[in-house]
Design a protein around this nucleic acid. Structure first.
Lengths: 341, 341
DNA sequence: GATGTGGATTGATACGTTTTTACGAATCGG
DNA sequence: CCGATTCGTAAAAACGTATCAATCCACATC
């Protein structure tokens, strides 16, 4: 490595003190234009690159927001990340994406990392409903905002009303006349899944139906492959017992299910209607375009980052906020057959 | 913030010197089990969290690999990232994902950040063929490995042979008897796009055909929306001039095109056959399952991280390596109609 | 000409860790 | 029981930056 040049070398080269160099870097308005240009020239000539670690050590906090998501492969979360990044970079911050993969241990490892790095703050979609670890981190000085997950008054959160989402989905199926429906989702420790199921139950019960009639098929993870597995199980059911509609806890599962239905030559929506959740871009491009509950993904990330930044930059006046967006239903051909041309 | 506790506090609390605490943290085998346990207990009790910035400042290099990708929303790259992360975490490192969005300025901003952070190393799919900036960074002491992009002898790279990929795709179309084909991709400054087109030309010319017969439709970015735009353009062409097959530079574009074809009631593969590239998971779940050129995405990321780690940990014996994987073609119904049941 | 003013610049210090060197204690073979 | 060797600990010296109080200087004011 070319002996790394530091702020002292720059100062010497420009004939100023190191304090001035630091000022050029951090408060350029304080230093006269002539000196500033000289220093900048030296920086350029020497190839000086500020050492972020040293800066951070001195300041005590990094300029990086940690975003811990449940599944990096799910476009829902990359969209959330894009929104967060937009708000962050507007404030001169950056975002690192951490993947917990719905796994408590990985979540903890990620949180440890972020804490050791003295992150500016943490945005997280938690793996469980136990938020003790997160509260502990906050008590320790690193603010955290819950993403895609509501919270009580004592924390900040930005979420979408999943109960309403579940209601929208099932109310839609009910209005189409379905009498045997299934819910596919899990693990139930994910608040999103539990809430969507709760919404489903509410909508089902609204017409005086027995909520227990909803066939709940729990899966260990919200992945395409789990959707396919459930599809195999459904294909094995005798046709008269088979649900005529399935509400999936997210689009990946729904796409997996749809794929398996196609493979098994079970028509959608003819024999089985499918509703997904998230309305990721691929939902519209699916074999049968997917009816799905749309969430404002990008805004979710943006709002979360903004709330976090607000908490850090105005700690005095900050009051914890719980922002809740409303989802809406996008009806496509996986529930309503396209009018034939 | 609860006055942050440091290694000195821990040492005092455990009745040892701070050097011992550091040893417990970094070379636990050097310290007696009794002392070690005492120190660990103190760490736990005091809630000590190692300050990574200070550590890094001292050591001179971070424990984080930067991975700069062209499109965070493309599942291809998240799979690459997963592979890289696997190799990294095996070596006690972590990976931060940076999105250049096919944009030179964003790429540079990301590289600046990684350089200021004294990254362990950089994995990058560059936006242009100008690699001067990357070489400069390497000269400065941060090793970099090209991902999904070949290189000459003087750099490390891990890639998939895109020329072969293009050949596979077009040879397949030729074997199906297509006489008018189009290539959709861009921008051409992306080596991947240029190489895939070159492969296409080679395969086309192989039968003595005029390479210029391939209709090249250039797009500014490899996104779903661009695929849709091209789809609109194709739909407007008189049917006898329309290509009977389209080779898309990646699956996102192919999915967008497919979506628009469906919307316009142009049958696939009947009126137009489509070949994609990358074989992302969603390709198989598309309206018409997509024929695509498969790349070993995960292995790409894994190998890249391994090569990087090798370069850093054995700088003496390290010789730059160019690893090239072979792609293969996955034929699905977007080119070959499914036999009717 | 003395004094005041305000902006520009300086230089010392602290941030929290890792590493190195030196030294003390304990262990082992002879 | 002694000397040699190993093992573990202690103390101090960086690492490169931001900050802040102090100083300097030029210029305007009286």
């Amino acid at each position: 490595m070319a002996a790394s040049v530091n702020v002292i070398d720059v100062a010497r080269h420009a004939g100023v003190s190191l304090g001035t160099v630091s000022n050029v870097l951090n408060r350029p308005e304080r230093v006269s234009p002539a000196t500033r240009d000289r220093v900048l020239a030296s920086i350029d000539e020497l190839g000086f690159i500020r050492n972020e670690a040293a800066r951070q050590l001195r300041v005590g906090r990094s300029r990086t927001i940690g975003l811990v998501v449940l599944d990096m492969g799910n476009p829902f979360f990359t969209d959330v990340a894009a929104g967060a990044e937009s708000a962050a970079s507007a404030a001169g911050l950056s975002v690192v994406l951490c993947n917990s993969a719905e796994n408590v241990d990985r979540e903890n490892a990620n949180l440890n990392l972020l804490q050791e790095q003295r992150s500016y703050g943490i945005l997280i979609t938690p793996v469980t409903s136990k938020l003790t670890r997160i509260d502990e981190i906050r008590r320790h000085g690193t603010p955290a905002v819950l993403v895609d997950r509501g919270s009580s008054r004592n924390r900040c959160s930005v979420s979408v009303d999943d109960v309403v989402g579940g209601q929208l989905a099932v109310a839609h199926l009910v209005s189409l006349g379905h009498r045997r429906i299934a819910f596919v989702g899990g693990p139930m420790r994910l608040a999103q899944v539990a809430d969507r199921l709760r919404g489903a139950h509410l909508a089902w019960a609204a017409g005086g139906r027995d909520p227990d009639q909803i066939l709940v098929m729990e899966i260990p993870a919200l992945k395409v492959s789990e959707g396919r597995r459930i599809g195999e199980a459904i294909a094995l059911m005798p046709k008269q017992e088979r649900p005529t509609a399935v509400f999936c806890a997210n689009d990946l599962v729904a796409l997996g299910l749809l794929q398996e239905m196609t493979r098994q030559r079970i028509t959608v929506p003819g024999e089985i209607a499918i509703v997904g959740y998230d309305d990721i871009d691929f939902a519209a491009a699916a074999a049968v375009p997917l009816t799905s509950v749309r969430q404002p993904r990008w805004q979710l990330g943006e709002a979360a980052a903004q709330v976090l930044i607000e908490e850090v930059s105005e700690p005095k006046t900050h009051r914890h906020r719980q922002i809740v967006f409303e989802p809406d239903l996008v009806v496509r051909e996986s529930t309503v057959p396209r009018a034939m041309p």
